[in-house]
Every structure is written in C-alpha cells, then in structure tokens.
Design a protein around this nucleic acid. Structure first.
Lengths: 233, 233
DNA sequence: GTCTATACACAGATAGAC
DNA sequence: GTCTATCTGTGTATAGAC
C-alpha cells in the first residue's frame, strides 16, 4: 500500500472528526443544532492548528482565534468552557482517532514482517493525513494538566507496545533477531515522529512520504531481520 | 569512549557558558562587574530551563523568573533588554556551544566508520550533558523571530551535512553501502533527537545514555555497512 | 446562536529611590 | 546593582442586547 491508496481509505475520516468532537462534548456546549455546531467546530479546529503551528497554543489568544474563525469571542465560548478545555478536547479527540485507526491494522496480517511493515506504514501515513493533529499533540502536550499529560504518555507506550509485541512474535518465529525489542520500538517511533516534527525539511528536500517510509522500513528491516531470513515480499 | 569519559572531558564547559553569555552580550547589559554578572546569569539560565521545561517559554512570566532566581523584576532587566531578547540569547549561545564542541570531533578519526561512530556518540552525549539547552532549542524555536528560526534550521542542516559527508566518504572507500545519504542522515538525527525529547521514557525504563547510544549505533551500522565489510573495532 | 461591550487579572516593561 | 511601585497593554472570560 502506498500513501495515495491509504488516503482513499481513510481520508474521509477527517471530515467526521468535527462531528465526533460535537457528539462527545455535546453536554458542555450551548449549541443545540448539530449542523451549525459541526460546521463551526471545523472552522475552530482548523484555525487552532493554523495559528498554533507557528507560535504555540499558549501564545494563541482567544482574540486571534476569533479573528481567524470570523466568530466573536462570545460565540466561541458557546463551544467550549475555556481555552484550557479546548486544548484538552483537541488532545483527547486526536488520541481516540489515532488509536482507532491503528487498531484496524493490528490484525490485518499474519507474518511478523508483514505486520511490522503495515504497522510502521500505517503510523507514518496517518501522521501525514492528520499532520496538524500529530504535531499539535506532541508540541502542546506539556500545556496539559497532569492527567492529560499522563494520557499522552500512556498513548506513547501503547503504540510502542504494538511494535515491540510484533518484534517479540517475530523473534519467536525466527523471523527477527533477538535483542532489546523495547528499545528498538523506541527507535522506530523516533523515526516515525521525525516525519511530522520536521516537515519543513522534507518539503524543502522534496522527499515524499512514500520515499521517507520506504527508507524507514529499509533501515528497520536491515536491523531486525534474522541473517538467514530472506526478504519476503 | 563512554559517557562518563565524555563528561570528564567536556563537563567543565558547562560552567563557562554563563561567562560566554556575558562576554558576548556585555554591550547590552547594565552590569559592569563580571563576577556578579556571571553568577546571576547562571541563576537566570537555570531558572529559565527549570520553568520552561514544564510550561514553555511563552507561559513563563517575568514574575515567575523573578521568583525562581530570587532577583527582582528591575534587576532582571539589567541583564537583558526584554523577554524576547532573552530567548534569542539562549538560543544563540546554545547553537555556538554545540557547533564548537562537535567541530572538535570532526577530524579526530580517519576511518569513515570511526568517524561516523564518533559523530553520533558525541552528539548524543552532548545532548545528555546539555540536555536543557537541547530541549529548549527544539521546543522554543518557533517562538523566535524569522531570522532566529532560520538559524535553527541552518544548524539542523549543518549537523545533517556532517553525517551525510561521512556516509559519502565511506561509500567512496567501500565501507558503506550506496544509498540516499541525505535521508539516512535525517534518520540518524531523528534517533539522536529522541534521547533528549523523550527523556521521561528512558528514565522510566531505566535505559542509560550508553545503552541508548549503543543501540543507535547498532541500528545505523546494520543499515549502512557494506555487506563485505567486517565490523572493525 | 451570535454579537458588542466590558470586567478584572496579569503580562512586560520602566522610573526612581536606595 | 538592586529594589519597590507603577504604567500600560493585553489576556481570558462573561453579561446582556439582539
């Protein structure tokens, strides 16, 4: 699978996120009509990403947000109780979205190498498709309250475990070398993260997400595959 | 070389940084006595790192800084013209320090593999020794004015080129495989960066900087070394 | 639902006494 | 050199008209 195919399968999900945000946080919102709520939430989310990408969430004022969305301050506060809660809402929804999408890939293959490839590919492609969410989650995590930050760390460990479990399974089947799988999983996550943290570099060097992903896979396979293992398709 | 040896060689440098900051920015400071200036700059720097690690530079108020340093607001403004300039001073000094230290490693070895190992090791060890500086540089880069941000990107490309040049040289000498060396250098940088960006994870998993570095080297060598190349010491 | 106007806290920065 | 006191702008958030 390449990115273009991935996008066809999961691109539609992006348009549903605002709706999910509404349904989950309906209780805290003063807006009753779903249609207007969802439409405005979409504006709010994309405005937040656009403003905070350059200067961070703390530096974004509610007046900035009002200007960018074209909504008044008063209107904004009908959608969330406060700025801090807005941060938490976005972070929570981002985690749910990532977790759900990745879990669909977990059982798609049997062979450990196929599993590993699929897991890595899915994560990088997903981070490309929802880049603002990924970048935001990472950069603004420390502005969360302790409970929120713990959730971020738990998520990091969750995705790490998906990888280390595959490596473990592969070792048992003689596909992968033995070694410190936890640490290897950390390395893989670092490589995945590079893609959305330093996007300016890859845009500048004209490196596509497919080229990047292939390179990551080559590197990981070069390190993990047992010596007597032929590179199956 | 392991981290403990590295620290003996370069640990002293840490105590000189405040002095360098003073000498470089002397013109903009109202303090004339070097001794008091350096002592207070040390307090200021460590206070900034301690406060911003948790909530970021934007969220740190000058009153926070005043409280942590034990200096008054008025006194602080004798050391730098404004909060924005303080950010720039720290970023600039951090870059100079890293660049100088790394350049000492560039010509220390002849064999490409030795060069590569030394370059990777030095960078990770340095990021451990000056962790607050590295973390700060990455996380607060986007709060800089355009010129400052360009300098950060230039630095990133500079350290990337050190690596890709070594890979290039190694390919010519038949030590390393051919391939996209630019992209490989990016991967290496991503792995190095992981160490100071997600320190909480490695503290929790009780992974030392030496164990981490060795794992990075294994991974990189597994990918870069030409097949017929024996792993020289 | 959305607006305008405004309350109130706190930010960065400076003046002038010591 | 360092302090306290204070200026002025901007921040988040809300009240109440429409």
């Amino acid at each position: 699978m390449n990115y273009s195919e991935f996008k066809k399968l999961y691109g539609a999900r992006g348009r549903d996120i605002a709706k999910e945000v509404y349904l989950v946080n309906q209780g805290a919102m003063r807006i009753k009509k779903e249609k207007t709520a969802v439409a405005n939430l979409e504006k709010i989310l994309s405005a937040v990403f656009s403003i905070t990408y350059k200067k961070g969430f703390q530096a974004m004022s509610m007046r900035d947000l009002s200007l960018k969305t074209g909504m008044s301050l008063g209107a904004l506060y009908a959608y969330f109780p406060g700025k801090e809660e807005l941060l938490a809402i976005i972070q929570d929804q981002g985690r749910v979205m990532v977790k759900e999408t990745l879990s669909r890939f977990a059982r798609a293959h049997d062979h450990p190498l196929e599993k590993l490839r699929a897991a890595i590919r899915a994560h990088i492609y997903l981070s490309e498709l929802f880049r603002p969410w990924f970048y935001f989650t990472f950069m603004e995590a420390r502005n969360l309250k302790p409970a929120g930050f713990e959730a971020v760390k738990a998520m990091e460990e969750h995705t790490q475990k998906i990888l280390s479990d595959i490596l473990e399974l592969g070792e048992e089947q003689g596909v992968f070398k033995s070694g410190n799988h936890e640490l290897t999983a950390c390395m893989i996550k670092a490589l995945q993260q590079e893609w959305y943290l330093k996007r300016w570099k890859y845009t500048k060097q004209k490196i596509t997400v497919d080229a990047f992903t292939d390179h990551v896979l080559e590197m990981v396979e070069g390190f993990c595959l047992a010596d007597d293992n032929t590179l199956t398709p």
